[in-house]
Simulated scan of single mutants.
Amino acid sequence: MVPFPDLKPTTIFAIEGEETGTKRRLIDAGERLMGTHGIEEPSLQDIAAEAGQGNKFAVQYHFGGREGLLDAIFALRMRAIEARRRELVNRADEGGLDSDLSALVAAVFIPMSEQIDEAGRHSYARLLLQYTSRIGFDPARRDDPFNARRSFVIGLMERMATLLEMDFAQFELNFYQQNVAMIVALAARDNLAFRNRPVPSLARLVEQTVAMTAPALRAAADYARVHQGG
């Protein structure tokens, strides 16, 4: 089994960067409200009020609108996620795990699972679930605001596809399915905790998901080879 590092829970306010406190509070409020109620449901005025802003047009002033706020959320979160992924990939390479599929999957899943809000919940994962389930979202569209921030992980996906000798387009679809499963697992864990139900540790949840994902990707590659050409 791939050795898992200690997780490093990270809030919006702990990520290094030049964003002002006002912008971070709006980003935090937008992430939580849109992750809970849907991308289009909370009004921009509701988000501003949740962030403690007296100006009901604060989101428009700082981000231009809803889509600009979404992009700001992705930019801030992905800064931390991509840096952590580079760290984990370098660790895997130095440990001789450069061709280990599970190590590369872990490098994708661990940083995402570390993104929490001030209450310790996975509001970013819930936002991704809302965003990627929008009608018209295309995981392969590179100029999508979310995908445009994921250059490093796309390189990781190309590396995994090569390991599996799999066409990248086929791999991308299969990996997208597994990534959604990881997001759903984080959201489900939050729901159980909210209802004071027993929950697995975050580390165990991530380890289990990685352990299931690597064989699923190998099976997808085997299936693609058998059914190549139709």
Score class of each variant (00 low, 15 high):
29 A>P: 01
53 Q>E: 12
25 R>K: 09
36 T>M: 02
43 S>Y: 05
126 R>E: 14
129 L>Y: 06
39 I>H: 05
169 A>K: 10
92 A>S: 13
192 L>G: 14
91 R>M: 03
17 G>H: 02
125 A>C: 04
98 D>E: 14
65 G>H: 06
57 F>N: 12
119 A>R: 12
3 P>N: 13
48 A>D: 06
47 I>D: 02
157 M>S: 05
123 S>R: 08
75 A>G: 08
95 G>F: 11
102 S>N: 10
146 F>K: 03
99 S>C: 11
103 A>E: 05
230 G>P: 00
224 A>L: 05
136 G>T: 08
184 V>A: 09
194 F>M: 12
196 N>K: 13
191 N>L: 15
127 L>S: 06
72 A>P: 03
62 H>W: 07
8 K>C: 03
175 F>L: 08
106 A>P: 08
15 I>Q: 01
124 Y>E: 09
108 V>T: 03
203 A>Q: 09
83 A>H: 12
54 G>R: 11
107 A>W: 01
2 V>S: 04
204 R>N: 15
173 L>E: 10
149 R>K: 15
15 I>G: 01
59 V>T: 03
227 H>A: 05
11 T>H: 06
150 R>F: 02
165 E>T: 04
136 G>N: 08
152 F>N: 05
106 A>S: 13
139 P>H: 10
74 F>R: 05
19 E>Q: 14
69 L>R: 07
101 L>R: 03
78 M>R: 14
216 A>D: 11
48 A>Q: 04
141 R>Y: 14
6 D>A: 13
208 Q>M: 14
79 R>W: 02
91 R>I: 03
168 F>I: 14
103 A>K: 04
153 V>L: 02
219 A>W: 12
214 A>M: 06
23 K>I: 04
45 Q>M: 03
203 A>W: 01
225 R>N: 11
184 V>G: 01
154 I>C: 03
158 E>C: 07
108 V>G: 00
83 A>R: 14
159 R>Q: 05
46 D>K: 04
5 P>I: 12
212 M>I: 13
27 I>W: 02
124 Y>S: 12
89 V>L: 09
151 S>F: 10
143 D>W: 13
70 L>H: 09
49 A>N: 04
193 A>G: 10
68 G>W: 05
36 T>I: 00
12 I>Y: 11
100 D>S: 15
126 R>Y: 07
21 G>F: 01
175 F>A: 12
202 L>S: 04
129 L>H: 07
148 A>F: 11
25 R>H: 03
107 A>I: 01
73 I>M: 14
146 F>P: 03
25 R>M: 02
177 Q>H: 15
55 N>F: 10
204 R>V: 13
133 S>R: 12
223 Y>M: 09
166 M>A: 09
127 L>W: 05
38 G>S: 07
229 G>H: 07
